[in-house]
Computed example of a mutant assay.
Amino acid sequence: MRVMIFGAGYSGKAIGRLLSGQGASVAGTTRSAEKGKTLEAVGIRPFVFDGASLTEALLGELSETTHLVQSIAPGSEGDPLIRLCGQAGIRAIMPKLEWIVYLSTVGVYGDHNGAWVNEETELKPVSVRSVERVEAEQAWQVVAARDDLPLAILRLSGIYGPGRNTFMNLAHGTARRLVKKDQVFNRIRVEDIAAATAFLAGPKTAGIFNVTDDMPSPPQDVVTEAARLMDMEAPPEQPFEAADLTPMARSFYGENKRVSNAKIKRLGFNFQYPNYMMSLEDLLGSGSWNQKA
């Protein structure tokens, strides 16, 4: 397995670390040579990608790639990799490609007033970024169908893990307990994203899968539990309506749903961190909560 991760950031690094540890040859893109050092440290060969052009070195690596992980968010101009492939198609630059995984978001479902959603639920994206994600999902489906390639689309919920979690917010004094009536969110530990990717990559499984925990919960409950585990006083509750939030932060609260992960579990995948309570306890107990992200 020769893997290329476009956008080897927080989730991409976790995927690369796991696949490299399993014996795969893993490469990944980053914006600068300096950031490439952090990829090398976890077993990922770095290639600089500016989002606008493919270097000769990167093209050489892509000519040998068998498994593609696309983690770069689309913008107003669409998915950058599809745009660079142009009319020639993806096989023109990746002739040995056998499988694609696109990392999307549960934001594509939009607001369902707290109801359960699954992979068959109607997509009702609210924010501009979620609309762009729907368009990117559809674009990758066209690309995969054109070249008869298996495509897995992973719809991810709120990502957290070592170096990015509520403990960090409490330690930095930025944690808040915002309360909005009946609001719930799903979450996903970054290691479970990596494990789900590896699980699907081996047999080159195609399909759309929600990669999320089992416990959609009010966000203030997570802060309360983290503070309890750290033996700290939780910050006071604040009504959402009166909170000073950026437009992006406020937009997250405009989507209320419970996301089911039953489909990928029916294939035999087991989440290592199925709920935030056991996950927070693990992060604190292992000392990994404040590792560099």
Rank of each mutant, 00 (worst) to 15 (best):
F269S: 07
V222C: 00
P218I: 00
S32C: 10
G51Y: 06
G7H: 00
R187C: 00
N113G: 10
I5W: 02
D111L: 11
L18R: 05
R133E: 01
P239H: 09
L267H: 03
G86N: 11
E241N: 06
G287R: 06
A136S: 15
Q138C: 08
E135Q: 15
A206G: 15
P46K: 04
S76L: 11
D231I: 04
V131Y: 00
L280M: 07
V179R: 09
T174G: 05
P236L: 09
R129T: 14
F49C: 03
Q70C: 06
G78K: 10
N165F: 03
K181M: 08
L151P: 03
K13C: 14
D282Y: 13
A139W: 09
A242W: 05
P236A: 15
D192L: 06
V101M: 10
M248E: 07
M278V: 13
L59Y: 07
K37C: 08
V211C: 09
L97G: 03
E122N: 12
E64M: 08
K37H: 15
G158T: 11
D111Y: 08
F240T: 00
D147M: 06
A33T: 13
F252K: 00
M248V: 05
A243V: 07
F185D: 03
T105N: 13
E122C: 12
A136N: 07
E281D: 11
F269N: 06
R2V: 10
T212P: 02
G12H: 04
S11N: 09
G202D: 13
L178C: 14
Q220N: 10
